[in-house]
Write a protein that binds this DNA or RNA. Sequence first.
DNA 1: GTAATTTGACCATG
DNA 2: CATGGTCAAATTAC
Length: 300
Amino acid sequence: MAMASAPACAASELVAKGRKSAAFLQAMLGQQPASGAGATPHGLQDLADEILRCCDRALAALHGAMEEAAHAAAGSARKRKPEHGPVAIPPATSSKRIRLSGGERATRRVEKKWTMEDGFIWRKYGQKDIHGSKYPRLYFRCTYKEDHGCMARRQVQQSEADPSVYLINYFGEHTCCRDDDVFAAESPAPFVINFGASTRDEYPSSSPCWPSCNEDDGGLVASETSDLCHSPEEKELPAGMGNEAELIVESTPVPELTSMSSPEWDPLDGCLVWDIGFGECLFDDIIGEFTPLDYVGLFQ
DNA sequence: GTAATTTGACCATG
DNA sequence: CATGGTCAAATTAC
């Protein structure tokens, strides 16, 4: 309900402002001439960079929480099987087969990441060479499928256009972290923004499914409904890996990969690849764009 | 010894 | 029949 999403929205705005400040800091550091042999701006830049990334992930986590809240709130207005976690996809819109156990149809979203890491723990259960694709498709299911009956699955495939990019198809939702007991006990933790380097320790094995702010994480950044997604990159998705995505999630190139050494790198755009432009716009606007239409009503 | 991964086989779908 | 998704035995790693 709105009462659940309002604090999340406020927190999201705060994180967004923090991120903006960090972006400016990083920009200022980038403009600083490397004067003073001892003063190494790279260390500070790395720090600012990490702050940016943590903010991004915090936003993503908040976004995910709001999405959950939105789904829960919209339960009466939107089609959702109450006894099944995954949201049903209208079969009529599905032209390609998506075989799911028990014939279920689940939420599906596509991410493009620079790493396969997403903070969740997956177990690989298959690999398949895909016709016409240079790279095999890897099949993963949640490690906690047995323990919690979590039906979350994902398919990972390297992009042919850019092999450094992984196209990750997510099916179903993680229920292993949504159990009432677990969620009640752990709910504060996932949204704690820890700017330190030991964030991984914030999420011990008791709640391993929450996306964590770790070094390897490519960063889940944003998601948009297919109606909102106009990214041309969606067209780059190989057959069966995004053409019918319910959600397209643009993911972040880790800044240090290119941006820190690139003179054209825009510090305000270095951490997130959004369909929208960053420019000088306030983050409030970004949140507006960041927020799927489903949630807009909840925030007002 | 246990858990995770690999990989070929099987099955469903178009 | 071709292709993609999943299963499960074998293998490997810890």
